[in-house]
Design a protein around this nucleic acid. Structure first.
Length: 895
RNA sequence: GGGCGAAUAGCUCAGCUGGUCCAGAGCGCCUGCCUUACACGCAGGAAGUCGGGGGUUCGAAUCCCUCUUCGCCCACCA
């Protein structure tokens, strides 16, 4: 069987597409509900159906895929469950914008036609994001993909709503909520994002009704004064105590309003007197309620001044009204001061419009009873966060939790399953799992609530609703509870905390035991990548130019626990070249290997399994096998600890530094048949390369699959994706080989350095004369002399040689001196300087360490192992310094 | 206003329980090489007061305090 020749540069595009198709055809990702091995379940945070892939997804999905592939190779029954979120407001906005381009609004269509239109849109484009996710190589179980608005999940939504309603945890009431005047809906507290803004604090004079003076109130929102129904001061404030109970004649609207004393007023802020607008401010609402003040809503849903306010303010947008009110006060001589004031303003998380606190009747979930068990789970260690400190954020939110406004005045979503009896005498309000045509009490006509539920109400159920709950399905039994939640910190409260609460409430078990919160993808100015800033990186472009593996490599390498991933949108090369280069390196190592597998037949099984006898292994073979085992241990531990950057780096170093730069170069003569032992080298190379591919597969699935599949001896249908994860092997440990080969590397590096220093032509061979070699170096040279000669381009390697004149020299860590005779090329002064610098550097270290070891405190208090290690270090350095000084003496260096 | 995180080479970052750290990697930079796997490469090299100051310790990039600068989360001072 001959593969078509592999091109010298890895071309990811077609290969990746073909491989994903092959994986799909093999149906590798479908989770098995039954089996001996434990399951491993990750719920993919469902992207919005309207979304297109951005780097945040890229990071999030790559991390999950790496974890899932790792565990799959370790034999777990993996379920990585994908899905999409109907994303109520976001999706509705998209379709409304489309309608807007046709000059129409959703109201022109009416509810039914509009919802049909959104479905049409979703059916057409809803798979886009899923297709893009495939491009990343995501190994999720597409057969179980869900959509939060599909029938099964909608049924779960109703079930949950009704159960919570029956338990009294859902109620309807009139409170101040966050209102988006552009989306025309209520929002939860979490959906109103606080943004610091520069504003003003206006000091307004409110005349006393009896004309005996005035009170000055301070406000950031003067336009709301049109709805003022009182003025509040702290009851103990000596400045105002006597005014409590008197009345203000409210300017512009000419209304008499009372001055009340309320503990909620901070006497130290502003003037200590607060205008009270119960319909437009949460604090004012509380104050108003305590003092039975009327609540006047002075705005329309789109935040214009309502008909209830007098001209000229009526009909003005709230920003215009603000200017107009301030102007009017100024004209009346009632504007006392204007001061710059920076404060946090709520913004709609979907459209950035400043939200309007507004009195409104909405549905709420009582959160405190649900939050308590979720907090306990964290406190008693059942729920773990990575990084750990995120757990405190979670806890603090739960401790201060407020009720959750779940009704939205939009059409796209789960309609609230509540029906109102239209018969006035009955007036029954019924929450129902099934649609009601008539009132369950009186049989009269019933009308369903017009509102829909917050999108997050359905997504919080996904860990069990997507598995078939409330049916007790096989999937539910097999895959709940899950294991790890991988997500961005932004949705810790929106989603993660709520999933925990719902899981505990309805399944009596946590939905996952670990929450892994990765960083945010930012640009080099540390700004979050976003469409509006135009600082995004399109993952599809990256995949096309550099390959999905390169993107994944970059994401993982940058994903150290607790840090953000910084990428430069203006320099893709800086961000992704390393990953592409590494893929190419792998590719070429594979190409080399495949091109050199011909030769004396020898089973290509792992040396760990003893196919090649231990006494046949050369020093380099033993060294590589030991390094490989260390890499297995390091990478495995890194994955287990979510240290994905370490996992990638460990595999990278083994593959590139050890296997490619040293072992392959060392083994070439054997592989070319110039020296005996080619069969052993082939076996070692094939086995360790196989291990390296497996270690890298979770991070770079495409290229590892491609190469692994090309290795000889593969049965058709074999895939690295389900190959077993390499296990550490105690028999591979070989401290002697590690140490000896390290000395050999030093020797080669020393000769190369001398060659470069004196500009020896690359083709020119040199002699290398070694004196005072340690037993380890003697062993190493005896074993691998040919390698040294080849790697350092040395014609003669002589041990126990005297150091001649006209040579460049270096001292190795075992104290051996290497001399490379270079005749005329040598500059004696330069040579003296080189050796002198090195001697001085080491002598300083020796002095420091000598002092340390002379310190009885250190010797007595530091652990024995540390002390002996330091003694060995000192001995080594002393030997080196002595050797360097001898050499300088011999050269007749001055100083 | 509270709470938290970060600051290490020109850039992006590792450095985990204080001692294998004589501070590393990738990119960029300099020098030399198209050496029959790879120039997306090979070899050699330059580059760091580990943000400033103080402390604890035999020993600090690592722990503590403080200052500076950036970032995040929370928050009804109108």
């Amino acid at each position: 069987m001959t593969e078509p020749a592999l091109p010298p540069q890895y071309q990811p595009g077609q290969i990746e597409q073909d491989l994903y198709q092959r994986w799909t055809a093999l149906d590798l990702w479908r989770a098995r509900p039954q089996g001996d091995r434990p399951s491993y379940v990750i719920m993919m945070p469902p992207p919005n159906v309207t979304a297109s892939l951005h780097m945040g997804h890229g990071l999030n999905l790559t991390i999950q895929d790496a974890l899932v592939r790792f565990e799959r190779m370790r034999g777990r029954r993996v379920l990585w469950l994908p899905g999409t979120d109907h994303a109520g407001i976001a999706t509705q906005n998209v379709v409304e914008r489309q309608l807007g381009q046709e000059g129409r609004t959703r109201f022109d269509l009416g509810r039914e036609a509009f919802v049909a239109r959104v479905w049409e849109y979703v059916d057409q484009t809803g798979d886009t994001i899923l297709e893009q996710i495939r491009g990343l190589g995501a190994s999720c179980d597409w057969s179980r993909a869900y959509f939060t608005l599909e029938a099964d999940l909608s049924r779960a939504v109703r079930e949950v709503f009704v159960r919570l309603y029956e338990r009294g945890l859902i109620y309807r009431g009139e409170y101040i909520i966050n209102w988006c005047p552009r989306c025309l809906t209520a929002l939860s507290n979490e959906e109103a994002e606080r943004q610091e803004r520069d504003g003003s604090l206006w000091h307004l004079r409110y005349p006393l009704a009896d004309g005996s003076g005035h009170v000055v109130v301070a406000t950031t929102r003067p336009e709301t004064m049109l709805g003022d129904t009182g003025v509040a001061v702290h009851p103990d404030d000596p400045r105002y105590r006597d005014l409590v109970g008197r009345e203000i004649r409210l300017p512009l609207v000419d209304r008499l309003i009372p001055i009340v004393g309320d503990e909620g007023v901070d006497p130290d802020f502003g003037t200590g007197a607060v205008k009270v607008t119960p319909a437009h401010d949460p604090l004012d609402f509380e104050i108003g309620r305590r003092h039975r003040l009327a609540a006047l809503d002075v705005m329309t849903p789109d935040a214009r001044m309502a008909d209830t306010v007098p001209p000229p303010f009526r009909g003005l947008a709230r920003e215009e009204a603000r200017q107009a009110v301030v102007g009017a006060f100024d004209a009346l001589g009632l504007l006392e001061a204007t001061a710059p004031h920076r404060h946090a303003v709520g913004q709609c998380y979907r459209c950035d419009t400043v939200v309007e606190p507004r009195l409104s009747e909405q549905w709420f979930v009582r959160m405190a009873p649900l939050a308590a068990p979720a907090l306990d789970a964290y406190r008693d260690g059942r729920l773990r966060f990575i990084p750990e400190h995120r757990g405190e954020e979670y806890a603090r939110w739960l401790e201060n939790i407020r009720d959750w406004c779940i009704s939205r005045q939009i059409w796209w979503g789960h309609r609230i399953p509540v029906w109102y009896c239209q018969t006035p005498a009955c007036g029954r309000v019924a929450a129902s799992r099934t649609d009601l045509a008539a009132c369950p009490d009186c049989g009269g006509p019933a009308r369903q609530d017009e509102d829909v539920l917050d999108t997050w109400f359905s997504s919080q159920l996904v860990p069990f609703s997507a598995l078939g709950w409330p049916e007790r399905t096989a999937d539910l039994r097999a895959f709940y509870p899950g294991d790890v939640m991988v997500t961005a910190p932004e949705i810790l409260f929106f989603w993660v905390a709520r999933m925990v609460m719902m899981g505990l409430e309805f399944m009596d078990e946590l939905p996952f035991h670990t929450v892994y919160l990765h960083g945010t993808v930012r640009d080099t100015l540390h700004r979050k990548m976003s469409k509006s800033l135009g600082n995004g990186i399109d993952p599809l472009v990256v995949i096309e130019r550099y390959g999905a593996d390169a993107l994944r490599y970059t994401a993982l390498a940058g994903a150290a626990v607790g840090t953000d991933v910084i990428l430069d949108p203006n320099d893709l090369e800086a961000s992704f070249a390393a990953g592409r280069n590494f893929a190419n390196k792998l590719w070429n190592a594979g190409r080399f290997l495949l091109g050199n597998l011909d030769g004396p037949a020898r089973p290509l099984a792992g040396p760990h399994r003893g196919v090649v006898r231990r006494d046949e292994l050369s020093l380099a073979d033993r060294w590589l096998i030991a390094r490989c085992d260390l890499a297995v241990r390091e990478v495995t531990a890194a994955y287990e600890r979510f240290r994905l950057n370490d996992a990638v780096a460990g595999a990278y170093r083994f593959l590139w530094d050890d296997l490619a730069d040293w072992y392959i170069e060392q083994a070439k003569p054997r592989l070319y048949g110039d020296r005996p032992g080619g069969d052993v080298a082939r076996a070692v190379l094939a086995a360790t390369f196989d291990v390296a591919l497996r270690l890298l597969h979770p991070a770079m699935p495409f290229i590892t699959e491609k190469l692994w599949g090309s290795l000889p001896g593969r049965t058709p249908g074999a895939t690295i994706a389900t190959a077993t994860w390499p296990l550490p092997d105690a028999r591979a440990a070989d401290p002697e080989a590690l140490a000896d080969f390290a000395l050999l590397q030093e020797l080669v590096a020393a000769v190369r350095s001398i060659r470069a220093e004196y500009g020896v032509q690359p083709g020119q061979s040199v002699r290398a004369l070694v004196s005072a070699a340690s037993p380890a170096l003697r062993r190493a040279v005896a074993a691998e002399e040919a390698a040294v000669r080849r790697l350092a381009k040395v014609s003669d390697l002589v041990l126990d040689a005297g150091s001649p004149e006209g040579a460049g020299s270096a001292v190795l860590s075992d104290g051996a001196t290497v001399a490379v005779p270079l005749g005329d090329l040598i500059d004696l002064e330069r040579e003296c300087q080189r050796l002198g610098q090195e001697a001085t550097r080491l002598a300083d270290l020796v002095a420091g360490l000598t002092a340390k070891l002379a310190n009885p405190q250190f010797v007595s208090r530091a652990p024995e192992a540390v002390v002996s290690r330091e003694r060995e270090k000192l001995a080594s350095w002393e030997t080196q310094v002595a050797a360097l000084r001898r050499k300088r003496e011999q050269l007749g260096c001055s100083g």
